[in-house]
Amino acid sequence: PENADARSILFLGFSAEEWGLLGSRYYAANPIAPIEDHVFMFNMDMIGRVTDNALMLGGRTTAEGLDAWTQPFLDEADFDLRPLPRGVFGRSDHASFFKKGVPCLFFFSGFHDEYHAPGDVSTLINRVGAVRVATLCEKMALAMATEPERPVFVNDDGTGRKTDQPPAAKPEARRTNVRFGVQPGYTTDGKGVLVENVFPGTTAAEVGLQAGDIMTSWNGTAIGSIEAWMPLLGSAKPGDTVTVTYLRDGEEHEGTGTLKASGK
C-alpha cells in the first residue's frame, strides 16, 4: 500500500521449470500486480547440496550497485562464494523476471552425482547448508523490502551489454528429444560448457568426455555457454551423429557419438 513501511514479499513456487520455465514465464506474463511493481526477484534453486561451504550466486550485475549491496550479507554468511558467469545465465525461474526487467539474485549450491536420477533422495540433503542459504536469502529479502529506493535494473546477462532495458525476447525453450548424458556446470564464463559429470552408457561417454572437461564445439558450432548449446541439442534427433570438441587440462580433443532418445 501507499506509505507502507515495507514492500510486500510474495512467496512463489513454480512448476514445469524443466520444460522451459513454464510456471515462472506464465506468472511473469500474468502477475497479480503489474510486473513493473515487482521490485526484485530472489530465486533459490537447488540449495540443498552445499559442499565444502561453496555457494554459487548469480545476478549481482542485474541492478546498479547490487554487487556492493550484497557484500555485507555475504561476508556475514561466510560461504566460499563461487559466482555464476557474469550476468544471469542459469536455466532457472529468475530468467523469466530478468526478461521483464526485474533485477534478481540466483542462489545455487551446484550439481551433484544424483542430479535427475532416482537416487536423489531427501536423506542426501545438507539441511544445515540449506538453512544457511535460506537465512542469507531471507536477510537480503527483508533488507530489500525496506530499501528507500528501488534498485535500477541493468541488463547485464554476460554478453557485455549494459542497458536499463530488458533483454530482447529469445525463442522459448523446448524439451529435447535426445539425451546426451552430461551434468553441465555454470562456471566457465563464456569459454564453453563445463562437464561436471558423465553418465555411463550415454553418448557423452561414447564421445569420451570426462568430468572436468569443457565442451567448446558441437558439430563445428562454437558453444560458449549452456544457452548456446541447448538450441543445438534441442534440434537434434535420435540417431544423429555428433562431433564434440572439448578441452581437457588445456589441451583440445575431439570425439564422435550417436545420440539416443530421451529416456534411453
Rank of each mutant, 00 (worst) to 15 (best):
P103A: 11
L259P: 00
H94V: 01
S8N: 13
T216G: 03
L81D: 00
T221P: 00
T245L: 09
D67N: 12
V131T: 14
D37F: 12
A134P: 08
E254L: 12
T188L: 04
E138W: 13
F40L: 15
A228N: 04
R161M: 01
A211E: 07
A236T: 08
L74I: 05
F111N: 07
D156Y: 00
P1K: 13
V128A: 13
E36T: 15
V88G: 03
E206Y: 02
F89V: 12
D80M: 07
D5A: 12
A63C: 09
R179T: 14
T188G: 01
Y246G: 06
F42T: 12
G208H: 05
V195M: 09
D249M: 07
R179M: 15
F14Q: 10
D213H: 10
P31G: 09
A145R: 10
S262T: 13
A168H: 05
T135F: 05
G234R: 04
A143I: 07
D157L: 08
L105F: 06
T159I: 00
P166C: 06
K162N: 05
F42A: 11
D67I: 10
V131Y: 14
T188Q: 04
V182H: 06
A16V: 11
D45Y: 14
T176W: 11
A222L: 04
R150Y: 12
E147C: 14
W218R: 04
D67Y: 11
G119C: 07
E252V: 14
G181Y: 06
I226F: 10
L12N: 11
A6Y: 05
R86A: 08
M46K: 11
A4I: 07
D52R: 08
V242G: 07
P103T: 11
F11E: 13
G13M: 15
A222F: 00
G158N: 01
T245V: 12
G201N: 02
E64V: 10
A211V: 09
M140Q: 01
G192S: 03
N126V: 09
P148S: 14
A222Y: 03
V133R: 07
D52Y: 07
G192K: 02
I32Q: 14
V193S: 00
V154K: 11
S8P: 10
A168K: 08
G87R: 03
C104A: 14
T203E: 03
E138I: 13
G224P: 04
W229N: 06
D78H: 11
T163A: 04
E149S: 12
V242Y: 04
A28N: 04
V88K: 01
P167D: 00
L233K: 10
E147R: 15
G250D: 02
D67C: 08
Q165P: 00
L247I: 10
V182K: 06
D78L: 08
K139W: 06
F14Y: 10
A77K: 03
G181N: 07
T241A: 15
G129H: 11
N3M: 08
F106N: 05
L10N: 10
T62E: 01
G224V: 02
T135W: 07
A169L: 10
E254K: 15
V128P: 00
I223R: 02
V50Q: 01
V39W: 12
T123E: 13
L247Q: 12
G201P: 01
R25C: 05
F73E: 03
P166F: 03
T243Y: 10
D156C: 06
A143H: 06
L10S: 11
D67S: 12
K162T: 04
T51E: 12
I32A: 13
G201E: 03
V131Q: 14
E227L: 15
G110E: 00
Q165N: 10
P34C: 12
T216W: 01
